[in-house]
């Protein structure tokens, strides 16, 4: 659906060249919600803006639905852009126009007949759930309502793709949830493919099917949300994963506990989250597990849990216990005692 191939973008500023994107390749499939996560300055905003060519890549090609946008004439590009909706962190509504006008004006400028415009405005206002605000001005709306208007404006063109540029970053947690639910509904009911960028793990966790992690203008990891976050390889990915678990343990306690055993981090995915694996460990081996901290969360629909456990016992018994846990498809980290010292468990 969306295909970026070897896309690079270099900005020339007075202070020199800035490489915002370095040889990025990415493919978004039809019907999925694809998330790009990264810290600010990672280049994700530039990345999403190259998809509809708001930012022209210095090198590489951008294709949408098999059409290579980078090769189109301005007129044809305009036509292709109508099939790609976009929403923004700052909403970008007309301040001097009502909610109704904010949706109808772009449709009118796109040359739709009057009756059709009226139908669409009403239809999409009801889909985003703000029919009653039709005659209000943006200044009279809350952040969440403004984003709903922006979403209605974007999908009123009946696009195949929706690009979301940090659409929930300016909203409070409850409103973020509601907007994410709306995006999920749009994806499922209208079949619109969504590409979003964010710096919030909860956005990826809640609605994304696949994810790419960006750092310094490069995609460092990329795959299904479950694969990437249950077995993070890159340091940045690990930091994002850790951000959804809040394991803060006092240093003094850790030092003391390490004298009598190992401290390990256990990750449970899907069904293993629900099984009494640790109880089995204490029955089968001469090891006493002591749970220091734990969380179970969700990656879209799949439960994902992480426990920080102190395994008390002999080294050989602990090794056997770890082996057993791994057989049970539990991801074990930090087994070696020296390793634990270097690992940030937070």
């Amino acid at each position: 659906m969306i295909k970026l191939q070897n896309v690079s973008k270099t900005f020339v500023t007075k202070k020199g060249k800035v490489e915002a994107l370095k040889n990025v390749s990415l493919e978004v499939k039809k019907g999925e919600i694809f998330g790009v996560i990264g810290y600010s300055g990672a280049g994700k905003s530039t990345l999403i803006r190259t998809v509809n060519l708001l930012e022209k890549p210095s090198e590489g090609t951008v294709s949408v639905n098999g059409t290579e946008l980078t090769k189109l004439s301005p007129n044809k590009l305009s036509a292709s852009r109508k099939k790609i909706g976009m929403i923004f962190q700052g909403f970008n509504l007309l301040k001097t126009a009502t909610v109704y006008e904010n949706i109808s004006i772009p449709l009118r400028l796109s040359g739709l007949p009057k009756a059709e415009i009226d139908n669409r405005v009403k239809k999409y206002l009801s889909i985003v759930g703000i029919e009653s605000k039709s005659d209000s001005y943006p200044s009279q709306l809350s952040g969440g309502q403004k984003q709903r208007v922006a979403i209605a404006r974007a999908i009123a063109h009946e696009p195949e793709i929706l690009l979301s540029d940090e659409a929930t970053s300016a909203l409070d947690p409850d409103t973020t949830e509601a907007i994410l639910d709306l995006l999920l509904k749009i994806n499922e009911e209208l079949g619109i493919t969504i590409l979003l960028i964010t710096h919030e793990m909860k956005v990826i966790q809640k609605i994304c099917d696949r994810v790419a992690v960006m750092e310094n203008g490069e995609v460092v990891e990329n795959g299904s949300v479950l694969d990437v976050f249950t077995a993070p390889r890159h340091e940045t990915t690990k930091r994002f994963v850790n951000s959804i678990f809040h394991h803060q343990l006092p240093e003094a306690l850790l030092t003391k506990l390490k004298e009598t055993g190992s401290i390990v981090s256990l990750s449970f995915v899907d069904n293993t989250s629900g099984e009494p694996t640790l109880a089995l460990v204490s029955k089968k081996f001469n090891v006493f597990p002591n749970i220091l901290s734990g969380t179970i969360t969700q990656l879209k629909d799949v439960p994902y849990g992480k426990l920080i456990v102190h395994l008390q016992g002999d080294d050989s018994e602990i090794d056997r216990a770890v082996e057993f846990l791994e057989q049970q498809h539990v991801l074990v980290e930090g087994v070696k005692r020296n390793d634990v010292k270097n690992k940030r468990i937070s």
Partner: peptide, 15 residues
């Protein structure tokens, strides 16, 4: 006028 608004319209393919 906020440049973001202009950009939003550019993104909608409006000349």
């Amino acid at each position: 006028v906020d440049r973001g608004v202009l950009e939003a319209y550019e993104a909608m393919g409006i000349p």
